[in-house]
Design a protein around this nucleic acid. Structure first.
Length: 362
DNA sequence: AATCCGGGGGC
DNA sequence: GCCCCAGGATT
């Protein structure tokens, strides 16, 4: 169990270690509130290395709260394409609009007010408040939970909200008033590069080496305790790359649910035969001429697994757009439309030359 | 308290 | 394969 006297001894060694070992990260060199906000949203459930290529591009495209608040949805999703959890960026835009209306475009320097903004929970509110404004509040993420459970050899289930709350309250008691941002970042940094989430922790580099209970007892493989998530369900789908000489058919996904509002190839539940696939195309009021079976593909989400069978279907000219379908120039479709990674196996067929010999004549 | 929501990297 | 990741919203 975490106690105040225990936590007090961790602060100084941690800060000294952080001063020497902090990584140089794009959002760390210039920590304006907006930059901290954008980086923290991107970093939710997402590794630093994955965020890096997105961050500066996003900041350049939308350099301030106002431009984010006014950005067209299509462009916004395009900037987020491939990062996942797309509601993060929708919520951030809603919050940006709130900040424009209620706070004159400036993120409030107030933990409780930050917490009210869409997409900002306890962790992110704490991160922005402490890093951007120096407000002494904790920011408890997975790293922080892991290293604190380990240093104290606490076998509480870190998935429980009660445990997170307990850790927040404990940290609140010892957080340094003059460098809260560094302290919070130091905790996370230690978890990210020393007391790592997978594999053996690098204890010889740890500022807490001498008093870490998990190291003393050799328990790193047992801690932290985290209840296993439920298994994934499997969905079979058939994906149709429908095209004429120059255009390809895309569809927009529903506004809610998985991959909300992104674009995709028309697809159907189940594994369809060639004839069934052709029938689906006809039901779209299109006129299939040839069909070619493509490779199977698999895509894994957190809670679903798609097993896909692809077909490329050549139709006569795509001119009059049918309801719900978009006929887009194949050459520009990938630049213009956010298409999730789930369809990566088939996007190459948007542009590949139509080879007669490998098509089956209908 | 459970479930939904992406995608990638490590082992 | 299974795990995790600078989590939050919804039910």
């Amino acid at each position: 169990m975490l106690e105040k006297f225990q936590l007090e001894q961790i602060v100084k060694p941690l800060l000294a270690w952080f001063e020497k070992n902090a990584r140089t990260l794009p959002w760390r060199s210039i920590s304006t509130p907006y930059r901290v906000w954008v980086s923290e949203i991107m970093l939710q459930q997402t590794r630093v290395e994955a965020v890096k290529p997105y961050f500066e591009r996003f900041m350049h495209a939308l350099p301030d709260v106002k431009s984010l608040a006014e950005c067209e949805e299509e462009r916004l999703l395009k900037l987020w394409e491939g990062l996942g959890y797309y509601n993060r960026v929708r919520n951030m835009q809603i919050a940006a609009q709130t900040v424009m209306e209620q706070y004159d475009g400036k993120l409030p320097a107030d933990y409780e007010k930050l917490l009210e903004l869409k997409g900002i929970g306890h962790y992110t509110a704490g991160a922005i408040a402490s890093i951007a404004y120096g407000i002494p509040v904790p920011a408890v993420d997975g790293n922080v939970l892991r290293i604190l459970m380990r240093v104290s050899a606490d076998n509480s289930d870190i998935m429980k909200q009660s445990v997170k709350t307990r850790v927040e309250q404990a940290l609140q008691q010892v957080i340094p008033q003059d460098c809260a941002g560094s302290f919070n970042q130091a905790l996370m940094e230690l978890g990210a590069i020393v007391c790592v989430p997978n594999g053996e922790p690098l204890c010889d580099q740890c500022p807490w080496y001498s008093f870490c209970e998990t190291r003393k007892r050799g328990l790193w493989q047992e801690l932290p305790v985290k209840k296993k998530a439920k298994g994934r369900r499997i969905e079979e789908r058939t994906v149709l790359v429908i095209r004429d000489g120059e255009r390809v058919v895309l569809k927009r996904r529903p506004k809610k649910g998985l991959l909300a509002g992104l674009y995709e190839f028309p697809n159907e539940p189940g594994t369809l035969t060639e004839d069934e696939a052709l029938r689906v195309v006809q039901d779209m009021h299109l006129h299939p001429m040839r069909i070619q079976r493509l490779e199977e593909a698999k895509h894994i989400f957190s809670h679903v697994e798609w097993h896909m069978q692809g077909y490329m279907v050549e139709v006569d000219s795509l001119t009059r757009e049918e309801a719900g379908l978009l006929f887009v120039e194949a050459a520009h479709s990938e630049e213009a439309y956010p298409i999730p990674a789930a369809f990566a196996a088939y996007t190459k067929y948007m542009n590949i030359r139509l080879g007669n010999e490998r098509f089956k004549e209908k």
